[in-house]
Design a protein around this nucleic acid. Structure first.
Lengths: 138, 138
DNA sequence: TATTGTTATACTCTATAACTATA
DNA sequence: TATAGTTATAGAGTATAACAATA
């Protein structure tokens, strides 16, 4: 058993530092992580079914229903009947939701870029390729 | 703004893959992540105050009280008065808790090593150093 | 006055399973 | 029979603030 603990700790604490940094900003925008993920997923699309959103955001359907309820209560999404399959529902951003997307997604990327822009394209590429190597093991 | 999204996605999905893999095992051992973290933190120590545990596990004190309550209910920890400071409490593993530590910590490392052992020491070192680079930015 | 840990409150996510309405 | 989404339930972490005991 090689000593993988330092690598493991580096992964965990790097992710946590990122998550912390990212979440603080998202909350300041008035959204939870789950809500932001849904808004970001729906942005620039014509709408999606719950199943599709669940796949992208890795939320199970029970959780997603709750997140969608809260977004609907805020007037950011609507549920409309899916003409192709009456069992399913299409989720779309409302104008308010669209505005929220514009006001959060791009600013959030810019917020994150404060950090990532300290690295060169080459460095980013190296980090990515090392992470890929690790990812592929799981 | 350089395109850091691929690097970001690699970080997030690698961590999620790890977390998923790790948590599945911890749950199969009958613990939540928070409970396991506390047990792992207390293992091989003479006990710690809540404050110290909170620092190591990154839990806020309100959360920690709940986690400790559940571990106490399982008979895995005890709260004893701290002779050095009567405001604070020392948390210690009971025999049951010690046994749980033995039965989970090492096995969990071995479970994780299934994955990490596919990499050479040099590869692990490279991944770690790239993660460090990223970590330092936050 | 400041700190330690508990309590209380309210929210969100998770997991699971049962349920409905369609397919 | 199978699938899409909702509902119900129970559990756990999060954040915040108020509080008692002690420093």
């Amino acid at each position: 058993m090689t000593n993988f603990l330092p690598t493991l700790r580096a992964l965990v604490r790097t992710y946590q530092a990122f998550d912390n940094f990212s979440e603080r900003h998202i909350k300041s925008l008035g959204l939870t992580t789950g809500q932001f993920d849904v808004i970001a997923t729906l942005g620039n699309t014509q709408g999606m079914t719950c199943g599709e959103i669940g796949e992208k955001t890795l939320m199970v359907k029970g959780t997603l229903t709750g997140v969608l309820d809260r977004l609907e209560a805020k007037g950011m999404i609507v549920r409309v009947e899916n003409p192709k399959d009456k069992r399913s529902t299409l989720i779309k951003l409302t104008d308010v939701g669209e505005k929220t997307f514009q006001n959060t997604f791009q600013p959030h990327l810019e917020y994150l870029s404060q950090v990532f822009d300290k690295l060169s394209a080459k460095e980013l590429q190296e980090i990515e390729s090392q992470l890929q190597k690790l990812y592929q093991l799981f």
